[in-house]
Amino acid sequence: MNQPADQSTPYTLVVDGDGVIRMGAVDILQEAGFRTFEAIDGDKALILLNEHQRDIVLLFTGLKLPGLRNGFEIAHEVAGRWPHISIVVASGDIRPEPGELSDGARFIPKLFSAEMVRAHLQEILPDGQKPEPLRARSL
């Protein structure tokens, strides 16, 4: 169930080529209080990031993406261009090697649970970027 969002509700960008995984992540993040943008590939993700960079506080991306860019490349570009955006990278069959994740990025395995995602968000998001449901749980 989606709660009405006001202008202060932060956005997250969910990027995954698998529609079921993407929809599951969107549901989890909306329940955590975010408004969401979705992208099927890295090119669409970068278009959305360029258009909405001030509103997006979290990138949630899979690793294997259709197109020319994978999740590591998107995460590195986001970390370099928009350091205010926190990053979560998820994969079911690839574990990042040392140095593959951008600084500050967090890896979680697929299939992830809502509790797992919320726990990581509690750790990586600054308090000012947490939507109300996550702020309420951190007290």
Rank of each mutant, 00 (worst) to 15 (best):
A119E: 14
K110R: 15
R95P: 05
A119W: 10
Q129P: 08
H76F: 05
G80N: 08
S102D: 02
F37N: 00
W82T: 06
D127N: 11
L121T: 05
R137W: 13
F60H: 02
M23L: 14
H120E: 15
L63H: 05
V15K: 05
N2T: 14
D93K: 13
I74P: 01
K110G: 10
D127V: 10
V117R: 02
I108Y: 09
I94R: 10
N50Q: 08
L111W: 15
I74H: 00
L125K: 04
G99R: 09
L121I: 03
W82H: 05
F37M: 01
T36H: 04
F107Y: 11
R118F: 12
F37D: 03
A119S: 11
G104S: 02
I108L: 11
L111C: 13
E132W: 13
R106H: 09
R69M: 13
M116I: 07
M1L: 14
R118P: 05
Q3P: 08
Q129S: 12
L121S: 03
H120W: 11
V57T: 11
F37H: 06
P4H: 04
E31T: 11
I56R: 01
G92I: 04
A90V: 10
L29F: 02
P133A: 08
L13F: 00
K110W: 14
L101G: 01
A90R: 06
S113L: 03
L139F: 11
G80T: 06
H52C: 04
R118T: 10
D18W: 14
A79F: 06
I87W: 00
E115I: 07
R69W: 11
T9N: 00
E132D: 15
R22N: 04
T61R: 00
S91T: 02
A45H: 01
D27P: 09
Q30P: 02
V117I: 07
R137P: 03
I108W: 09
L46Q: 09
I28H: 07
F34A: 02
G71R: 02
R54K: 15
E115R: 11
E77W: 04
N70E: 09
P133Q: 05
P126W: 04
I56G: 03
V20K: 12
Q7D: 12
S102E: 04
P131G: 08
A45T: 03
P109K: 15
Q122A: 11
S113N: 00
D18C: 09
I21H: 10
I21M: 13
L121A: 02
R22T: 06
G19I: 14
E97H: 14
A75W: 02
G17K: 10
I74A: 05
W82C: 01
D103I: 07
K64H: 15
L49M: 04
G128T: 09
L68N: 14
R137G: 15
S138D: 14
D93P: 10
G33R: 02
E51C: 07
R137M: 12
G104F: 02
